[in-house]
Amino acid sequence: MRAFIVRRLILIIPLLFLISVISFATILLPPGSYVETYVQNLERTGFIMDQGQIEAIYRQYGLDQPAALQYVLWMSNFLLKGEMGRSFMYQRPVKDVILERLPMSATIAIVSLAVTWLIAIPIGIYSALRQYSVGDYVATIIGFVGLALPNFLLALALGYWVFSSTGRAITGLFSIEYKGAPWSIGKFADLLGNIWLPIVVIASAGTASLIRILRATLLDEKNKQYVTTARAKGLPERRLIMKYPVRVAINPLISTIGWTLPFIVSGEIIVSQTLGLETLGPVLLAAALGEDMFLVGSIVMILSSLTVVGTLLSDILLAWLDPRIRFERIGA
């Protein structure tokens, strides 16, 4: 097991290098640059920038250098100094932009994931054990509706419903007076008044799909011979189900836990965009559209690293949780 982990960790290094090259190249692929987009946006609002000023900005951002040199400078600063460059759009170091938004991204992702699991696991188990009961049908219908309804549409509809019934517009996570303000009881209460909507929306689709996955896997497991044997030996039903088939049935959850890490950083971009949340997702989208390449590149690098690390964690957790995987490795 230890050798396996060490081997995987060593493999991560060339993988991340490759990802960094591909992501940087992808960012440079679209024609034009941030400066051109910026100048066009200014022109739309009536401002005219002089050619000299435009050229100065190109030089200021290092965009006058060859792409390979831009990459080397960015990566060497990243590795040696922990600097991710400056965001063109925000005119600030990239790490400041990311750190400003990361806490709320993580909070929403973790809370909605917890809500998803807390709702989906019991319902999924119930649905599988009471297959074709009224409760199962209700859960199935809710599950399908949740899967079929696009998240952003649910966000818009709920947002408008809350507004028309209360006169309160829930967009964003904080009222304007609390944005950027230090934490206080008032700010926390304001957050609670706003955060429930994105959590409900994000959790709904996750819950629906998880119920379906858990139900299907558990249905397979509960009719297997080891379950019949255990039952014949007189194991109490509740203990039997929870200790054996459920443990196997949650494997898909564990194997996808690796994706949770990047999700924490920039999950649910469309919902965040629709609801105007102050999370990292909309920043990534705006940066990609505006060709703010160091900001996009840094976020993509962080997401990729977290995906790779998360997948490793999933594998380790699976091996720890499921004896069959452990034994398979020993046998190999």
């Binding site: 818009l156 507004f163 517009a169 967009t171 964003g172 009222s175 304007i176 629709t274 609801l275 105007g276």
Partner: peptide, 20 residues
């Protein structure tokens, strides 16, 4: 003066209608 920076027109419209 406080100005909210938003890239979501629908959010701006709802908050405008809510008098925010």
């Amino acid at each position: 003066v406080e100005a909210e920076v938003s890239n979501q027109l629908q959010s701006i419209i709802l908050k405008t209608a809510a008098g925010e």
